[in-house]
Amino acid sequence: MTKVEITVDGTSTEHEVEPRLLLVHYLRDVLGRTGTNVGCDTSNCGACTIHMDGQSVKSCTVLAVQADGSTVDTVEGLADPVEGEAGWHPLQRAFHEEHGLQCGYCTPGMIMASKGLIEDNPNPSEKEIRDGLEGNLCRCTGYQNIVKAVQSAAAEMRGDTKVEVEV
């Protein structure tokens, strides 16, 4: 067992873990933070996407011990549940308003990947959004409303006045 200290959504956590423990299982099973999902075993689907030290990563392909000393941010840290809808992150609001989710299973990973995308490129084109989300699979939406949601959130995060997004 190895001791890890990981700051998750602003809270410091400390546990003795097996070195083989995957970061996503540390989040879900050790911490009970089940907002982050697992959708595959080959690093393809992106459902488990979180931010580690500010970069989007697939938490199924990182060992918890590799994240020792790191800061991890998940979808659960984007908004304070106590504040309700008023506290939502622009991406959360945009996914809701543009119907960027159906079953919602890919959504936490999709939102965290989109957050990274917008941080790297605050004004992405439709093609840049589509290419930037190539590592996240959704089986419900056909992606069109996800693209719309990311464009809409990016506009809000840039501080643009509300624009009608047509993709």
Binding site: S43, G46, T49, M52, Q55, S56, V57, K58, T61, V62, A113, G116, L117, G132, E134, G135, N136
Partner: peptide, 9 residues
């Protein structure tokens, strides 16, 4: 190479 998340790690 890979996708954005892969390129971060």
């Amino acid at each position: 190479v890979g996708d954005a998340q892969v390129r971060h790690r």
